[in-house]
Design a protein around this nucleic acid. Structure first.
Length: 202
DNA sequence: TATGTGTCATGGAA
DNA sequence: GTTCCATGACACAT
């Protein structure tokens, strides 16, 4: 598969520590992925968050929706509004992801990248409520986008992973502590992409 | 963590 | 072979 050049042989990139990232393409089939993409886009309670950057207020270039178990989260530390209740589709996806990841998640953040102009800038998932070395499972539906990672201490250490529709990526180890990641904007025409990041929130 | 701007490297076109 | 310009990668300021 052409998009797997990064993980050409064993499903892992040369040079990228395997203990930071797992990539599982095809967890969901093409049809199923397309169906879930459309349904989730249509039925999720999307929000577009506003962040303060210095003296300006800027709207984030993507839409989000946040779901979690009702009791087990601390949403104030995640600076999010009260989470939504799990839907049937999300629970089915969660089950499948948990079977591969080998642990149970209690929340999911959906990110909706409407086109190539939607993005996330370099950051780490550093929230206190996630712990220092969280395992975060990321499911992609729709448009293939590049997931870039770079080492905080040395930006020359940099990798790019093409996330396919239906693929599962698991971030773990020191990835959040020592690395940053992003989804860059693209001038190429881009269809919608949906990203589901399953987390364990204390 | 968003965006605009300036600098520099690259590569194809002229 | 040389020049020009579009594109993209960064760094940095805000």
């Amino acid at each position: 598969m052409e998009q797997l050049s990064f993980f050409a042989e064993q499903g892992q990139s040369p040079g990228l520590p395997a203990e930071l990232l797992e990539y599982h393409p095809g967890l969901f089939g093409e049809r199923e992925s397309e169906f879930l993409l459309q349904k989730l886009i249509r039925e999720s309670p999307w929000q577009q968050r506003v962040v303060k950057m210095y003296d300006k207020e800027v709207i984030t270039p993507r839409l989000t929706a946040w779901y979690a178990d009702p009791e087990t989260y601390d949403y104030t530390s995640l600076r999010r509004s009260k989470p939504n209740s799990w839907t049937l589709e999300l629970l089915l996806i969660k089950d499948k992801v948990e079977a591969i990841a080998g642990l149970k998640f209690n929340s999911v953040l959906l990110n909706y990248y409407r086109d190539g102009n939607d993005s996330v800038a370099w950051h780490s998932d550093n929230e206190q409520a996630l712990g220092t070395h969280p395992v975060i499972a990321s499911v992609s539906f729709g448009q293939v986008r590049c997931f870039d990672i770079r080492k905080k201490q040395d930006h020359r250490q940099k990798y790019s992973i093409k996330l396919e529709s239906g693929a599962l990526m698991i971030m773990k180890g020191n990835l959040q502590a020592d690395w940053e990641h992003r989804i860059a904007k693209s001038l190429r025409p881009m269809r919608p992409r949906l990203n589901l990041t399953f987390r364990v929130v204390m």
